[in-house]
């Protein structure tokens, strides 16, 4: 790892003052939170910043709290371990706690942060190989497209075929989370879903719309009274890993038998951003959880969820995998 200057501001304004406005210089100064992704990128020479701006001494950014109106407010420096164990998150925003718990190992969750997880870079092995000048690193070709693409995108790909690696993002999009982005000019709030961009939509070397001089300070998850949710992740090995595919499902139900009145369905590990499939979620509405009709609607949701899928040479398995995960996730909610 190359030497760098380490700045430790104690206020958000001081931290913002360290960040360059110039897009061309965005990788020369990097924000430092848990370091679990950034330091691996630096050790592999994918980025070589001359300065790190440590956020750990800015007070209050690690808080997780329930606002009086029931909104869950998560500071960007809250660790994944703290979020996974947070009682109200587990009770009322279950898929978020489950997704946080599913990230990495105990060691990674002790230090990895919510802000870092949402802003982590792709795991595509061409991107992670310093000798492969791929599209994501400013090259001219996505080597995964015609190369070894077992782990790459089946939906939303092109010209880059990365999948977004964040478990947390998938779960948070399912619960309509918003993110607060702070810069020296002020603050803006947007749906987390809009925070992510497809490779075809903007700068192909980025996964988000975060500006160089902005900090993602908070995530807000609105109260969802009467909702239940779950996050289901399928990994290639039993130990810790990134998702081959994952689903976050949230349903609002009432009555007996419990009838679904509203639903969200978001896929992870299959697209360059959390893949929200509202038409598939709509197929779940109006049917009773756990009924024969409910099982049919889960299958129907699975069919609608992968509309437009264009598997590459080695990843067609993700289509039935994610459909199976949808069925299992809804079964899990019915059993609660």
């Amino acid at each position: 790892m190359k030497a760098f200057e380490f700045a430790s501001p104690v206020t958000l304004d001081q931290a913002l003052a360290e960040l360059p406005n110039d897009v061309a210089k965005r990788d020369s100064v990097k924000l430092f939170a848990g370091g679990q992704d950034l330091l691996t990128e630096m050790k592999e020479h994918l980025v070589e910043p001359t300065k790190l701006v440590n956020l750990k001494r800015v007070p209050g950014l690690d808080r997780i709290e329930l606002a009086p109106d029931g909104t869950l407010v998560i500071g960007c420096l809250a660790t994944l371990g703290a979020l996974a164990e947070h009682a109200e998150t587990k009770n009322f925003f279950t898929c978020v706690a489950e997704a946080a718990r599913s990230v990495g190992s105990a060691q990674i969750r002790s230090q990895g942060t919510v802000g870092g997880n949402l802003n982590q870079r792709p795991r595509c092995w061409y991107y992670r190989n310093e000798h492969a000048p791929c599209l994501k690193k400013g090259g001219t070709e996505c080597f995964a497209y015609s190369g070894l693409n077992k782990y790459n995108a089946i939906l939303g790909g092109g010209p880059s075929y990365i999948v977004h690696p964040s478990d947390l993002a998938t779960a948070l999009v399912a619960l309509d989370a918003q993110v607060t982005l702070r810069s020296a000019k002020g603050e803006r709030t947007m749906a987390l879903e809009k925070f992510y961009s497809l490779p075809s939509e903007g700068d192909v070397t980025r996964e988000t719309v975060l500006e160089p001089a902005e900090i993602l300070t908070h995530v807000r998850v609105p109260a969802k009274s009467g909702w239940q949710s779950t996050y289901l992740k399928f990994k290639e090995r039993g130990s810790y890993d990134f998702a081959l595919a994952a689903v976050a499902v949230a349903v609002k139900s009432d009555g007996a038998p419990r009838t679904i009145r509203d639903a969200r369905l978001v896929l992870g590990g299959v697209a360059p951003k959390p893949w929200n499939v509202p038409k598939a979620a709509a197929a779940l509405v109006g049917v009773a959880l756990g009924s024969a009709e409910g099982a049919a609607s889960s299958k129907r949701a699975g069919e609608l969820a992968v509309v437009g899928a264009e598997p590459l040479a080695h990843n067609a398995y993700k289509v039935p995998l994610v459909q199976g995960l949808i069925v299992k996730a809804i079964e899990a909610l019915a059993a609660r």
Partner: peptide, 9 residues
């Protein structure tokens, strides 16, 4: 708490 010393400054 367990942490990775290689990814800790």
């Amino acid at each position: 708490k367990p942490v990775l010393a290689c990814l800790t400054l």
